[in-house]
Simulated scan of single mutants.
Amino acid sequence: MRSRSIPIALGVLTVLAAGFVAGYTPKRHARAESTVPTRPRVAVVTPKVLASERVMVLPGSVQALEETVVYARVSGYTKRWLADIGDEVREGQTLAEIDTPELDQELEQAAAQLEQAKAAATQANAHRDYSKTTLERYRKLGSAGLASQQDLDQRRAQSLVDEADVGVAQANVAAHEANIRRLVHLKSFARVVAPFHGTVVSRTIERGALVTVGNTVPLFKIAATDPVRVLVQIPQDLSPSVQTGLGAKVSVREYPTQSFDGVIARSAHALDPTSRTMNTVVRVPNPSNKLLVGMYAQVSLTLPAPHRVLEVPATALLNDAKGVRVTTVCAHDAIRSIPIVIERDTGATIEVASGLDGGERIVKIARPDLRDGEVVEVVP
């Protein structure tokens, strides 16, 4: 009995020893491996090169291509008006007629003064001719000893005076003729005409109303609305890309399903010191007058980027006392921080203007604990 219990005990001990060895050995290896220093594991991404063109939607304001207020150039009373609000007028078309009684009287007076000046000029010519004849007669008498030298000098002086009187009379005639031309030209402004082809925006003139010269009381306001101008402010980062002739899409909320094609007509070539934007004009055809002056519009522009732009995840950005930067993994898996300049923050991604060349391996999720030169393990 005793002899059989001994082998059984030895078997149990063997099984227990084997179980101890099987359970202790992995733990020993794990403790041994835990004492070996491990490298931080990071995931990396490569910057994405964005397209060379950038689409922007900017607010704009619809304005007339030309707009002016018409004032009276002569004083008088409104005889009649021939155009009203909303009428399309051509350049040179009569808008109103002004009765000018005072100007008419001035014109008649100037005509009478001109006739008087002409008569005076005729009289001066007669005196000059008489003086010349008398002077020649006294010269002959003087050579014959029948007239004194004093008489001869007196006749010569009188001839010069009469010659000068002729010049004065002729200048007086020319002055009166110029005055008549001025009054006739001024009289032409009694017919108020449109300065260019456009639409009458407002009319403040009434029949019989007194109008005076100056810019105090406007008569009409005219605007040219085909094409129209849409003023838009271009941000500083894209202002160097603005070129005359580039296309644009204009939309207004009154026509949600329709857009209007336009082109960049001109730009200020200077930035506003307050907003750091450049005033740009987009010209849009408007034959049906759907775009009204004063409308708020949205302008879609496709502008070439002035420099290459790279895109990285927003999670890769570090922004602290050392500045804005991203963490890159060099060739030997060493960490290196690179400062960058942000072009645009879209929320999920960051568009980088400078600092990267596009071939870097960037740590996808930034870790402030990583230091330059530290070796990391790049996970697939």
Rank of each mutant, 00 (worst) to 15 (best):
L292R: 15
P235L: 11
Q93R: 04
R276E: 09
V45W: 09
A157S: 14
P339M: 11
G355S: 02
T199F: 05
F220T: 07
A224Q: 15
F220W: 11
I365T: 14
K118L: 04
N286D: 08
V49A: 03
A169I: 08
S188D: 12
L246V: 08
I85A: 02
L291W: 08
A314G: 12
I98H: 00
A83R: 15
P287H: 11
L95S: 00
T68D: 04
R229M: 05
V15E: 01
T244C: 00
R182W: 14
S239T: 13
R156C: 02
I85P: 01
P380N: 09
L135C: 00
D87F: 04
V89R: 05
A171M: 08
V329Q: 07
L152C: 00
A174D: 13
E97Y: 10
V242N: 10
Q170Y: 09
A119I: 07
H127M: 13
K290N: 13
A111P: 05
D151R: 15
P7K: 12
Q298D: 15
V378Q: 07
R90Y: 09
A96C: 06
I264P: 03
D333M: 00
Q113A: 14
T328Q: 10
S259N: 11
T274R: 13
V55S: 11
V21N: 01
R182I: 02
I234A: 04
R28G: 01
E66R: 15
P256A: 01
G198D: 08
V70C: 03
E311H: 09
S259V: 13
E67M: 04
A72Y: 04
V213S: 04
V55L: 13
H29I: 15
T302M: 02
D345Y: 12
N172W: 05
C330R: 12
R308I: 13
I365V: 15
H185K: 13
V193Q: 10
E97S: 01
S75W: 10
R128P: 03
I362L: 06
D87A: 10
S275N: 12
G359I: 07
A83Q: 03
P227L: 11
G294M: 11
A121V: 05
V326C: 09
T277I: 03
V284G: 03
L310D: 00
L107I: 09
R181P: 01
R336K: 15
A126R: 11
T212H: 06
I205D: 02
A157E: 08
T199N: 01
L291P: 04
A110V: 01
F196V: 07
A169Y: 09
V36L: 14
V62T: 00
H197T: 15
A121I: 08
P227S: 10
A157R: 13
G86K: 06
T14V: 12
G323N: 10
T327F: 04
K118T: 05
V324H: 00
L303S: 04
P368L: 07
T216D: 14
T346K: 11
K187D: 09
G347I: 08
L50D: 07
G142R: 14
R182V: 01
P304G: 00
R182D: 08
K140V: 04
I222F: 11
G245W: 14
L146S: 07
R39G: 00
V192T: 07
F189K: 00
R325M: 11
G358I: 08
R191F: 07
G359Y: 02
